[in-house]
């Protein structure tokens, strides 16, 4: 039996297919091809000059004993685990406050949003580097309130702190997504709840949170993917140091590829990274009971 397509009369069934051709071609060229070739390269010892030899899963085996890789994977996971919840909670709180029908909301919204659009600009990354030098603005402020200065670039957890602070500073994009979702919740829900004797805090847990489930999940996935790929900030600000405490997987892949020309290994690592991200997103999907269709 011929399948029926619901199209306006006179429209051929392949019209839509023709229209999405840019996407199909782009998918083949820029997603499927690199994805597969990355996997295949990961099975070789290609170094960019010599023809590649097939070495099976040696690159993957090497990762388990490579302290550099294990450290970078640990740093990346730790960074993601600290940054993402902090950023989500902070964005949600500010979005809730801004949603309280306050005057001048537009101004605050803009002010909070600006850092997120400039944040990955290299100019801002350079500025951030200056703020945390030994006598930079951060330490001057600590001094003003009577606290001891921090050796930001010398201390392993402080160095990661610099990068986490930079990314937290850019909470605006996450906040905007929350804010737009909050505005879609009809005020009548809260009024009805109030009549039934439901307080503000219970209202938040009983009405707001359940209705925000989808956007929370969306923000979570977007932020996890971004954090796992962190490259610009550690590359420019800390150079991965001190003692490789901010050396992320993104930096490792870049170095293996362009400093050591170990392209087989670099591709194997980027594949492991893909699997890691897919796993984390998969687990979150399972835990929140969200199907793919919701995204």
């Amino acid at each position: 039996m011929k399948k029926k397509y619901r199209n306006p009369i006179g429209v051929k069934n392949y019209t839509g297919l023709l229209l999405i051709m840019p996407f199909i071609a782009g998918f083949m060229l820029f997603t499927a091809y690199p994805f597969i070739s990355s996997f295949l390269l990961g099975l070789t010892d290609y170094n960019g000059i010599r023809t590649a030899d097939f070495i099976g899963f040696d690159n993957y085996r090497r990762m388990f004993t490579d302290s550099g890789f294990l450290n970078a994977a640990g740093v990346t996971l730790k960074y993601t685990a600290i940054l993402v919840p902090l950023k989500l909670i902070f964005s949600l709180i500010i979005a809730l406050v801004l949603n309280m029908q306050i005057k001048g909301m537009g101004v605050y919204r803009t002010v909070f949003y600006i850092p997120s659009i400039l944040g990955s600009n290299l100019a801002v990354v350079i500025m951030w580097q200056f703020l945390f030098t030994s006598d930079g603005l951060a330490n001057q402020l600590l001094d003003m309130v009577g606290l001891a200065p921090v050796s930001w670039y010398g201390d392993t957890s402080a160095a990661m702190g610099i990068i986490i602070l930079l990314r937290l500073w850019e909470f605006g994009s996450t906040m905007i997504i929350f804010l737009n979702a909050l505005r879609d919740i009809p005020r009548e829900y809260y009024e009805a709840a109030k009549v039934d004797g439901c307080g503000k805090i219970r209202g938040f847990f009983a009405i707001t949170l359940p209705l925000l489930k989808n956007v929370i999940f969306l923000n979570l996935v977007l932020q996890v993917i971004a954090a796992m790929q962190e490259f610009n900030a550690p590359y420019m600000i800390t150079g991965g140091g001190p003692l490789k405490s901010t050396y992320t997987l993104g930096m490792l892949i870049y170095d293996e590829m362009f400093s050591y020309h170990d392209m087989g290994y670099a591709n194997a690592v980027s594949w492991v990274m893909f699997v890691l991200i897919a796993l984390i997103v998969g687990i979150m999907t399972k835990l929140t009971g969200r199907g793919r269709a919701d995204l």
Partner: peptide, 21 residues
């Protein structure tokens, strides 16, 4: 579905083969 998948594809996975291409 493929389109939704590409949105969540980490750029770092594809950028190295793209460089070689």
């Amino acid at each position: 579905a493929l389109f939704m998948g590409t949105m969540f594809m980490p750029a770092i996975v594809t950028i190295m083969p793209m460089y070689l291409m």
